[in-house]
Nucleic acid binder design. Structure first.
Length: 560
RNA sequence: CGGGGCGUGGCGCAGCCUGGUAGCGCGCGGCCUUUGGGUGGCCGAGGUCCCCGGUUCGAAUCCGGGCGCCCCGACCA
């Protein structure tokens, strides 16, 4: 039953004052969700219907590639998490049961499933295998935000593949990747698959699926044939005009000028003609000086990957002790290893002199200091991508990701199999996640207009929104009652019927807010002509459907 | 974790500075009106003013502590 007068569908004229993101405002206004606490949201019936629609797509596409559904607990013993080293993660909720045994709330299910596979898989004959479930995840996020976009509890479709070797993993990964493309296409999203960092999941390779929209928390670098998270993107920099070379570095007095933005204008040079020196303390290695072109920003994840170790910015006292006065440091004469970003082309630059109030001009990498070259800067719009195209940067929501985990979990948890020769080997694993709530939110972010949500038919809470003008007992209501019954016979629960004794403005405004793909309007005017008026939400096109074939006409609009 | 903001009927807000009867709009209930874009009128219900403590004859208002929520940054499988 979906008669507006009978169901819980609390639409609001105004969004909550603290909502910023479009999807946050509209999901609350349209009566899809309500908040319980920071990062904790209740799905009301309409919102839950959309989530279910997404889940149906996920199930179909997973099953289509031979990935089997199962279910694992959220509450888990801490043991396996200690064994994989993930017990230390701050986002992991930790608790004790009544016997004071350490427990966790799962933020992902690698540990649990690998634990089982360690016991169930014995032979190469048991492989490959792909499994998934749709289950609640708990993550103590430092900062939940934007409604349903970043929450502390959410459901996730997480799939896992188990293979005997890297080639097998590559096949499973490709199957999942293709399924992901179909899932996001069916969900009506504009999306990109981008190269990404492996992050806390660990492993040997990863991609993220990104839906561009204003509320996104990620930035993706895009060019024809190229797509990467800016955290790890690489590109050719835009050239910078450098001053004429000098025979040797010369001192320049720069009293009180310690930043690129202060020094560059003073010397009438572009900031790219300066070199920024960033001293960092590398775990187990001590201080290293990273050099970045003055107009560039450090990409911390790229640096971490280049170093292969944890690092932190050096403190002022450490810099003063090992190199020179803060604000005036540079590579020339510095007694620490130097990593030079590849975007610093050969030429003549300005750097700090490692002496008070002094910079050096005419510094040439190689001639005036030794270095190791790395790629650790953040790419910028206009840079040249590997394929030759110009980079554009877009903000995006991460709607899914796929990881080549390799043996990251199977080795610590002892998930092995015997190959044909009787040799015991670790299973090679992949994991593949999608957040249904983010698909819903991203769809709203990308498609909504001034009036409200614009659902694709695949994930709309209802595909048809039938509006009867007039009130109980009126002719239009009786006609609409009949159409509603016929539609239910065809579409089942996929039609909502606004049978309220409310004014036309209220009903039509709510229909636009809720954004179902097809709106049928039964009013006195249309009835006089023997028609109902159908409007498709996405393009606003109106169709006059003869009363006697209104249902057939509606089905036609849904197919088209 | 750093910075900023906010907590007053269901929602959005005013009142606080300068202490004394808690107010407005929307929504909600009843009656009437209206039914092709949130109609109009009359009547009415509904509030521990986030919590604890202090000052005071008296605290939504002043002081102290705490909690919660939002935004920016850091962080983010």
């Amino acid at each position: 039953m979906a008669q507006f007068s009978q169901i819980l569908l609390p639409t609001l004229r105004d969004p909550p004052a603290d909502a910023e993101a479009v999807s946050h405002k509209l999901m609350v206004r349209a009566g899809l969700i309500r908040q319980l606490g920071a990062g904790l949201w209740t799905y009301l019936p309409a919102g839950w219907r959309s989530i279910h629609k997404v889940e149906a797509v996920l199930r179909e596409e997973m099953e289509a590639i031979g990935c089997q559904e199962m279910l694992m607990p959220v509450l888990q013993p801490a043991q396996t998490w200690e064994e994989t080293g993930r017990y230390a993660i701050d986002e992991l909720f930790k608790l004790e049961d009544r016997r004071e045994a350490p427990m966790v709330l799962a933020l992902s299910h690698e540990e649990c499933l690998t634990y089982h596979m360690a016991r169930e898989i014995r032979s190469y004959r048991d492989l490959p295998l792909m499994l998934f479930h749709i289950q609640t995840k708990e993550r103590d996020e430092p900062r939940p935000r934007a409604g349903v976009l970043r929450t502390r509890e959410f459901t996730m479709k997480d799939a896992y593949s188990f293979d005997r070797d890297e080639e097998g993993l590559a096949r499973s990964y490709e199957l999942q990747s293709e399924a992901y493309g179909r899932i996001f296409d069916r969900s009506g999203l504009r999306w990109y698959r981008v190269e990404s960092d492996v992050g806390m999941m660990g492993g040997t390779g990863a991609h993220e699926y990104m839906a561009p929209c204003a509320a996104g928390e990620n930035e993706v670098a895009l060019a024809p044939g190229y797509a990467a998270n800016v955290e790890i993107a690489s590109a050719e920099p835009q050239p910078v005009e450098l001053p004429a070379p000098l025979a040797a570095p010369e001192d320049v007095e720069t009293p009180g000028l310690t930043t690129i933005d202060e020094v560059a204008p003073h010397l009438k040079l572009p900031s790219g003609a300066l070199i920024k020196a960033l001293p960092v303390i590398v775990e187990g290695r001590g201080m290293v000086m990273v050099l970045i072109r003055g107009d560039h920003r450090l990409a911390e994840i790229k640096l971490g990957n280049a170093l292969g170790a944890e690092f932190r910015p050096a403190a002022s006292e450490e810099i003063e002790a090992e190199i020179g006065p803060v604000g005036y440091i540079g590579p020339v004469g510095a007694k620490v290893p130097i990593l030079k970003d590849a975007a610093i082309a050969p030429g003549s630059y300005v750097t700090g002199a490692n002496r008070p109030v002094t910079h050096l001009r005419g510094v040439e990498p190689g001639r005036d200091f030794e270095f190791e070259e790395v790629d650790v800067r953040t790419v910028e719009a206009g840079d040249t991508a590997p394929g030759g195209g110009a980079i554009e940067i877009e903000t995006a929501i991460e709607i899914g990701n796929i990881f080549k985990l390799g043996t990251r979990y199977t080795v610590p948890l002892g998930a092995n199999f015997l190959d044909e020769s009787g040799t015991e080997r670790p299973i090679v694993m992949g994991s593949y996640g999608i957040g249904p709530a983010r698909i819903v939110a991203a769809s709203i972010e990308q498609r909504a207009d001034e009036q409200g949500i614009v659902w694709p038919a695949s994930i709309a809470p209802w595909r048809v929104h039938l509006v009867a003008l007039g009130r109980e007992g009126d002719a239009e209501r009786e006609a609409a009652d009949r159409i509603y019954e016929e539609l239910r016979a065809e579409l089942g629960a996929d039609v909502i019927y606004d049978d309220r004794d409310a004014g036309p403005g209220e009903k039509l405004t709510d229909a636009e807010l809720l954004g179902c793909p097809v709106r049928l309007l039964v009013g006195r005017r249309g009835l006089a002509d023997g028609i109902v008026e159908a409007t498709t939400r996405a393009d606003g096109a109106e169709h006059r459907l003869p009363l006697e074939s209104a249902v057939e006409g509606t089905l036609g609009l849904l197919d088209g």
